[in-house]
Write a protein that binds this DNA or RNA. Structure first.
Length: 220
DNA sequence: CACCAGGCAAGTA
DNA sequence: TACTTGCATGGT
């Protein structure tokens, strides 16, 4: 990886350690969680997943049969629950119809092509698609989120106008397709963003503080 | 009380 | 293309 990103990664890893995102979870649980966590604190998502797990609903077939209004009630703690129930249904329908309900079959598809097909499902945007591909499919695609963009722009590592794809490519061109690294790096960026790079940043205590440009963080 | 979370789609100009 | 808005619960 490039010297620069290596430095960033090492500082984050030394400061926070491994984040073990979605370590032992089943691919299905990762997929459901990826939708539920859209603009939502993970704590709330976790409650919704607990509901589904305890009710014995965490299988593709069961979720696919479950009426949308019932699914909505189980995932209520995750917020936007009617919207997310609908989005989950769209995704479950896609997996059932296009891959006969087999996640293994789905992840056989070439990365770029599968990514485009996921984006074709209403409710699945770039970050959700990439989260599914990386964390459930273990395919080498980098996940970008608001924190990632904020951290990079505040440090002047990317232009303020850089969009999702510009940032995604910045990482992919410099990290050599290393899935384990993509996984950990994204999680660490969310961690540092969550703790230090909010709208009102606390750069003085941030482990990346020594890497700020002269003149301090870039205003956004 | 205000603000925000591991986004996305649809509407407007 | 570039904003704006709806979606909703729960923590700080």
């Amino acid at each position: 990886m490039s010297a620069h990103l290596k430095d960033v990664f090492q500082r984050l890893y030394e400061a926070f350690g491994p984040q073990h995102w979605w370590p032992g979870e089943s691919p299905l649980e990762v997929i459901v969680g990826a939708v539920l966590t859209q603009n939502t604190a993970w704590k709330n998502v976790s409650r919704a997943l607990d509901n589904l797990r305890e009710a014995g609903l965490l299988s593709l077939e069961t979720l696919h049969q479950l009426p949308e209004e019932e699914l909505a009630e189980w995932i209520r703690p995750a917020g936007y629950y009617r919207l997310k129930a609908h989005r989950l249904k769209n995704l479950l329908n896609f997996i059932s119809e296009d891959f006969d309900g087999s996640l293994e079959a789905m992840f056989q598809v070439e990365l770029g092509a599968l990514r485009e097909r996921l984006l074709g499902v209403n409710g699945i945007g770039p970050e959700t698609a990439d989260s599914i591909l990386l964390y459930a499919g273990r395919l080498p695609t980098f996940v970008v989120d608001n924190y990632t963009a904020r951290v990079l722009k505040r440090h002047a590592w990317m232009e303020p106008k850089a969009d999702y794809y510009a940032i995604k490519e910045h990482f992919e061109e410099n990290l050599d397709g290393n899935v384990a690294l993509f996984n950990e790096f994204h999680a660490l960026l969310v961690r540092v963003g969550n703790q230090f790079c909010r709208k009102r940043p606390r750069c003085d205590e941030c482990p990346l503080q020594p890497l700020l440009p002269d003149g301090g963080p870039v205003e956004l």
